[in-house]
Simulated scan of single mutants.
Amino acid sequence: MHHPEENPWKITSEKTIYNNPWINVTEYQVINPSGNPGIYGKVHFKNLAIGVIPLDEELNTYLVGQYRFALDQYSWEMPEGGSPEGTDPLESAKRELLEETGLKADQWVEIQRMHLSNSVSDELCIIYLARDLTQFEAEPEDTEQLIVNKVPFAEVYRMVCSGEITDSVTVAAVLKVQLLLLENRL
């Protein structure tokens, strides 16, 4: 598809509003595409988002349950975490899978790259499919109080379709894996 190469937004000034080890929030004074002045806020994530959908030979996967502070509710999702800038995302994915589930995988395939909220942030997510799994001891971070459940993939797909699973990374990964299964590409 053809699209314009030049950015129609003009930045006249910028100011850091908030900064911590994980995010930076910047407010921009702009001239918008229609030529009018305005403001735009951007959240920059200092880590890549990483998701791992482990899938065993019997087509079971592993869901991680935890209470999500920002949502003020419990969430079931696939193993997820961050990959600090300058770190190999695949190595981060391997670390997250082991930390959260105790699993190691011999086969890794990147199945999706996506922006999580491109209207207000630049957060990029990389999703991996992990196969040929071996169970070890989980090593959760001290901020994580996790429950791990081995669930048939078909049940997880049903949970996504019914809205029981709402985590965007998990939803995207499950839909992608379902498509790959339907197309006999796994």
Rank of each mutant, 00 (worst) to 15 (best):
H2K: 11
P4L: 14
K10I: 15
T12P: 10
Y18T: 04
N24M: 15
N24H: 06
E27D: 10
Q29V: 12
G35I: 06
P37K: 06
P37I: 06
H44W: 15
K46A: 12
K46F: 13
A49G: 14
I50K: 05
L59S: 02
L59D: 12
N60R: 03
G65H: 15
Q66D: 07
D72M: 12
E77I: 04
P79C: 05
G82D: 08
S83K: 02
T87C: 00
A93W: 09
K94E: 03
L97P: 07
E99W: 09
G102L: 10
E110Y: 00
E110F: 01
Q112K: 14
H115C: 01
L116R: 05
L116W: 09
S119G: 05
V120L: 07
S121A: 07
S121M: 08
Y128H: 03
Y128Q: 02
D132M: 05
A138D: 03
E141H: 09
T143C: 02
T143W: 15
T143P: 00
L146T: 07
L146W: 02
I147P: 03
N149K: 12
F153R: 10
F153V: 04
A154T: 15
Y157L: 15
C161M: 15
I165G: 06
T166C: 00
A172S: 03
K176L: 10
V177R: 00
L186F: 08
L186G: 01
